[in-house]
């Protein structure tokens, strides 16, 4: 059981690392959104499921409720993250930012 939890935690950390490095490395605003919003969503999915599994070690009603709340957080993140990303993209389009194309300098 512990091994499953640790493996899931490490997978989640890899996704979070990809998100953080992607924010630093990608060349412009639009392409930075790709790792920022979505790999963080995937990372929180894996890490929160791992923590919910670990929380079920002593199986009582209280721990079951806590784990269900963790699942609710995952569902909420999956619903809200695309909406937040879309809000940021919409603001960028209306502010007139042009997307980076091949051969330009990174901004």
């Amino acid at each position: 059981m512990d091994i499953i939890v640790i493996v899931l935690l490490i997978i989640g950390l890899v996704f979070f690392t990809g998100g953080a490095v992607g924010i630093l490395r990608f060349p412009d605003f639009y392409s930075r959104l790709h790792p920022a919003g979505k790999m963080d969503t995937m990372g929180s999915l894996f890490m929160l499921i791992a923590l919910a599994l670990f929380n079920l070690h002593h199986f009582t009603l209280a721990t079951l409720l806590t784990s269900l709340k963790l699942i609710v957080i995952v569902v909420f993140v999956f619903l809200s993250s695309p909406t937040a990303i879309h809000g940021i993209v919409d603001a960028g389009v209306r502010a007139g930012l042009t997307p980076w194309t091949k051969g330009e300098k990174r901004r």
Partner: peptide, 26 residues
């Protein structure tokens, strides 16, 4: 470089904070 880049950074920090809070609780 732009305001929206800062917003992306703040959003990424927030999504990591949710996981960190539960780790602190455990």
């Amino acid at each position: 470089p732009t305001v929206l880049d800062r917003l992306i950074g703040a959003n990424a920090i927030g999504s990591k904070t949710v996981v960190l809070l539960i780790l602190i609780g455990l």
